[in-house]
Structure formats: C-alpha cells, structure tokens
C-alpha cells in the first residue's frame, strides 16, 4: 500500500504543515511573552486574532483597503489595544500573588470580545476575497497558495523581529529577565508594569498580524478564535513556556501533525490527534521539547 505516496505528495504535506503551523506559531509567541512576565495563559489571544481579522475585513469591504495594506493600521491599533488592555484590566491583578484572577479577567475578556463580535458582525462566517485570493505558486509540482506564503513571510518576519527585540534591546532583556525572575528584575530597577505592558502590547500586536494573515486565508466567525487559542497553547506546550523561538517551532510541529493526521487518518481526526499528542507531550516532557531542563539558580 501507500504507493500513491510520491515525493511530491510528501513535500506538499510538509509545506502545508509549515504554512498552517507558522500561524499557530505567532499566536503562541504572543502567549509565550504574556505568560513569561505575567504567568497567565492569555486565553483571549484567539478572540483578539479574530477581532483583528474582522477589522481587516471591515477595512476591505467598507473602504476597499487591501488586507496587507491594512497592516499599517492594524499593527499600531493592536499595540495600542494591548497596552490599553493591560493598563485598564490587568494592572491591578498582575501585582497580586494569585494569578487566577488575571486568568479569569482574560477569560472574561475573551467572552466579551467574542460576543461583541457576534453583535457587530453576526455569527455568519466571513472571508476576504481579493483578486489574488486564489492565486497559487506551483514550484516543482507542489501547490503553494499566495496568501499562505505571505502569511508565512509575515510570521517569520514578525517572529524574527520579536526575537531581535528581546535579544538586542535593553527593554527586551528586561522582559526576558522578568520572565525568569520578576522579583530579582525589580531589584535591578525594572518596573514590573512596564515589562508587562511591553509583553502585552507585543503579544496583542502579534495577534494583529496573525489576524490579517487569518483573514486572507480562512473564512472566520466570532467563535473561531477559541480553537485558535487552544492550538496556540498546544504549540506553546511543544515549545516550552516562555521560549519564544520554541513557540514558533511548536506551531510548525503542530501544523505538520495536523497536516499528516488529516491526510493519513482523515480530516476530522486532525484536531483529535493534535490534542492527543498535546496530552502525551504534557505527560512525558511537560517542560517542552526545546528546553534542556528546568534550571534553578
């Protein structure tokens, strides 16, 4: 059996996986940053991604703005919303020992955004159809949709941008330091609210980029985000909490898993397989695939 499994097909599955996975990856990077400094899983990340997809959709249908051009508006808006959300909703709770309160606020925010979107845009799926939506590249016989390729590019660029920021700037170092040991970071003169704002803004900023990518690829509805947040969480678990590069790789691994599972087992199985692998992963290597071991110092 499996004689239909040609080199072209394997490559295609591989490419599909990577194209899917990078979207999970940038959502996971956002989760990773927010988790790093605030120690909560920001479950509203998926709803925020869909929200920005709708913004891009609105700009396209109402004003005729090309979705990629809408990034000029969506990215600053998402950064602003990120810092606004932190200062208004999370600032008080972030200082508390009990992180469950921040988590509950995130869940509340998720429901609020989802339901507001249902009111404004209805529960019907929406999608953006541009002249290039069905355009595909066919290098060496495999199919690469143009919008997916651009989404991949956006994901890789934004992930590299975030990594550079974290590695090269002083505030980026402060974010990394705070992710490791917040109390020790404050002894260095680092203001916890400031690193939280930065992590939050970048996290939501990445949701903005993912939202635009999503809007050009899939049809989406207000409740779509939750699945996305769960997928990002799985990617995060693969990569290891608080590991930015790992989060991107985790997303890609998840994308590959889904691509292979839906082909070899059946499309309906893709989610079941990824959740199962997620659970097995948590049982066997809870610290993530790319973390050598839990370091204490």
């Amino acid at each position: 059996m499996l004689e239909y499994l040609t080199f072209g097909l394997i490559t295609q599955l591989f490419v599909n996986g990577i194209l899917f996975g990078t979207m999970y990856g940038i959502a996971a990077i956002g989760l990773s940053l927010i988790f790093g400094t605030m120690r909560i899983i920001f479950l509203a990340q998926g709803a925020m991604i869909v929200f920005f997809a709708y913004i891009s959709y609105w700009l396209f249908t109402l004003l005729g703005v090309d979705p990629y051009l809408s990034l000029i508006f969506v990215v600053p808006l998402s950064l602003l919303l990120g810092s606004g959300f932190y200062s208004s909703l999370f600032k008080e709770a972030a200082a508390l020992e009990d992180k469950n309160i921040s988590l509950l606020i995130a869940i509340g925010l998720m429901f609020l955004v989802e339901n507001l979107m249902t009111v404004v845009w209805t529960a019907n799926p929406r999608s953006i159809l541009t002249t290039y939506s069905s355009f595909v590249f066919r290098p060496i016989g495999i199919i690469i949709p143009f919008t997916r390729l651009i989404a991949l590019l956006m994901a890789v660029l934004s992930a590299s941008g975030v990594l550079l920021f974290l590695k090269k700037t002083l505030i980026g170092m402060a974010v990394r330091a705070a992710s490791e040991d917040m109390e020790s970071a404050t002894l260095m003169g680092i203001n916890p609210h400031w690193v939280n704002v930065v992590a939050f803004s970048i996290g939501i900023g990445l949701a903005g980029i993912a939202g635009v990518g999503l809007a050009t690829i899939y049809s989406f509805d207000p409740m779509y985000g939750f699945i996305f947040a769960i997928k990002a969480l799985i990617a995060l678990a693969f990569g290891g909490m608080g590991n930015v590069f790992g989060a991107l790789l985790g997303g890609i691994i998840l994308g590959l898993l889904e691509s292979w599972a839906s082909f070899f087992i059946g499309a309906g199985w893709a989610d079941a397989v990824s959740y199962a692998v997620f659970l097995i992963m948590l049982m066997l290597k809870p610290e993530g695939l790319f973390v050598r071991s839990v370091q204490t110092a």
């Binding site: 990394r176 330091a177 490791e180 040991d181 203001n191 370091q295 204490t296």
Partner: peptide, 30 residues
C-alpha cells in the same frame, strides 16, 4: 524595589537570583 535601587541601594538577594538564561554581559547590562 525599582525605586529603591534607583536612589542608590542595591540588594544582592539570598541565592544570587541571577537571570540564568541570560549571558553574563546581559546580566551586567541589566
């Protein structure tokens, strides 16, 4: 704490509390 260090009191906490995933130079920069 971030204000206390800024007026001139530095605290080396018990157990060092270094940022172990950061390099020596990055720790010093912070």
């Amino acid at each position: 704490p971030q204000e206390v260090v800024d007026i001139g009191i530095s605290h080396v906490p018990e157990g060092r509390r270094l940022f172990s995933n950061l390099t020596v130079l990055e720790n010093l920069k912070l």
